[in-house]
Amino acid sequence: MFGYIVRRLIAGVLVLIAVSMMVFAIFFYGPNDPALAYCPESRCTPQRLDNLRHNLGLDRPAPQQYVEYMSGLVKSRHIESGGISIDCNWPCLGVSFKYRVSVFHYLWDRFPATFSVAAGGAICFLIIGLFSGIFAARRRGTMADKAIVSTSLFINAIPYYLLALLAYLYLVQGLGLFPETGYHSPFKDGPFKFVGGLALPWLMLGIAYSTQYARFSRGAMVDALNEDYVRTARAKGLMERVVVRRHALRAAIVPVVTIFGLDFAYLLAGTLFTEKIFGIQGMGLAGLDAVQRTDLPMISAYTLISAAFIVVANIVVDILYSVIDPRVRLA
């Protein structure tokens, strides 16, 4: 089992290296010449471009540049950027063309906001989704079940940005039921402000994602309740509550864990619409901003960090599997 996890970790690192190479290749060979980013169109003589390239180290061989790029993972670097030398502290994934700061730290500063949105939203949609899914599964075929399934389908049919936008316009701007949204540090600004600013985003994420989780966990639970071993549990004379919780739920949770791992990783990479609509300065907005400005180091760093989240989520899911299912653990 231990060997299995270590193997997965190594595989994860390999995936990240592959991603970093791809990112680097796009940076280096992609359609956007990095040097052009520094060069206002009017004054871009070829001579100046070459200077810039030399300055940025773009004229050196690719492998050398790649090694230098990756060295930022183990030590701090000094980076020449547009004529000035910038300190890029460890871990360094390059310096933003636009802001002239370490892209990693730029993104990292925004991580608490993104993480708060993601974690709160996940808690909301897990609770709403799992409970309504399990409730529906146990009452399969009844009105309650049908109501839950059709509500979930209905909500699912509404585009998320529309739902979030309407909620913002009516509940915050219009009725003022919620305070103005945004991220406030729970440590500096206090927990009330923190929760107040994020309550509506959490709720929206909760509602939007929970539809999928309700149907998914309903399906998993229906399957689990039909399993032979659940029938055995009933045949033993266990209380229905015990049958459902200890026997069916434990099995139904397995497929839910899988999709949750990935969903959460995607959320951590930034919830673009949520951040945009509710005015939260998170990683998603930073990524969007970087794309709009062709800020190549920022895009690279953003891609790498997102990939890292997904790799880690996969490993965590695997570990969870082995906790839940002894057949995996003892294999």
């Binding site: 032979d228 071993y229 029938r231 055995t232 099995a251 299912d325």
Partner: peptide
């Protein structure tokens, strides 16, 4: 009751 397939009738976890 004893069921047909003991592999599926016992809880794997």
């Amino acid at each position: 009751m004893i069921f047909q397939d003991p592999l599926t009738a016992l809880h794997p976890f």
